[in-house]
């Protein structure tokens, strides 16, 4: 009798502990990268994808900032999800996001002042990035903290790679450089005519549109 009890107890303990990176969890990260990309499929966060993708360097900073904010706000909201009263959940989410964004902005100001000047108001505007709030409402409110962190990482990376690709083409054709390194002069092409359209928001729309087109042709995704 006693051995039986011990065995079932062991089984019960083992069952809920899932591998740290099980198939399901890997999917949480990989889904937003392509099939369920927040920018190209869900079409969220377009505003910042247009605003800060003129050059690679600010875009990279923005990617890191947004990913950090999504991950930590997911973690915080998920940890206190059972305490949050349903009627005020949106404002609670907003308060958490706003706090994190302000922290990011203050840290940038203290240690990366030049970047802080370039990004200026756009860091503050992470608060209004629909991806962050969308993930909180759709995922973190209903899932455990660890899964929520993975979900945040997935969404953050999904957002990041899209805006980095957009920024790559915009900086290459708009300013003739990558990370402020003059590419065309380095390979021997002098006076490369830069395209002013790429520096405008219109350039971002075009690159993003082409990106969505290519992606949907490959995945066969159709909007209903």
């Amino acid at each position: 009798m006693s051995t039986e009890v011990a065995e079932t107890e062991v089984k019960q303990e083992k069952k809920p502990s899932e591998a740290l990176l099980s198939k399901r969890r890997k999917k949480i990260i990989s889904d937003p990268l392509n099939d369920d990309n927040p920018v190209t499929v869900q079409v969220l966060g377009i505003c910042s994808a247009l605003a800060i993708t003129i050059k690679m360097e600010p875009t990279l900073t923005m990617s890191i900032a947004v990913t950090a904010v999504i991950v930590f706000s997911n973690l915080i909201i998920s940890s206190i999800r059972n305490l949050i009263p349903g009627r005020v959940r949106i404002i609670v989410q907003l308060a958490v996001i706003a706090t994190l964004v302000t922290l990011v902005s203050e840290v940038l100001k203290a240690y990366y002042f030049d970047m802080y000047k370039v990004l200026g108001a756009f860091v503050g505007l992470i608060i209004t990035n629909c991806i962050v709030m969308g993930r909180l409402e759709a995922y973190a409110m209903a899932n455990k903290p660890y899964d929520s962190i993975l979900d945040g990482l997935g969404s953050g990376f999904g957002y990041s790679w899209i805006i980095l690709v957009v920024a790559f083409f915009r900086e290459l054709f708009g300013s003739g450089s990558i990370f402020d390194f003059k590419v065309f002069e380095a390979v021997g092409i002098q006076n490369f005519p830069t395209n002013g359209l790429m520096v405008d928001s219109i350039g971002a729309f075009m690159v993003l549109g082409i990106l969505i087109w290519v992606q949907r042709t490959k995945t066969g995704y159709v909007e209903h």
């Binding site: 009263p85 009627r87 404002i91 609670v92 308060a95 958490v96 302000t102 922290l103 203050e106 840290v107």
Partner: peptide, 23 residues
């Protein structure tokens, strides 16, 4: 709800003022 909001505000506010003073 009122209590929750108050506690949350105090925690987040405290966090921000601390960061501001430290940085």
């Amino acid at each position: 709800i009122l209590l929750f909001s108050m506690v949350l505000t105090i925690i987040l506010g405290g966090l921000l003022s601390m960061a501001s003073v430290m940085l």
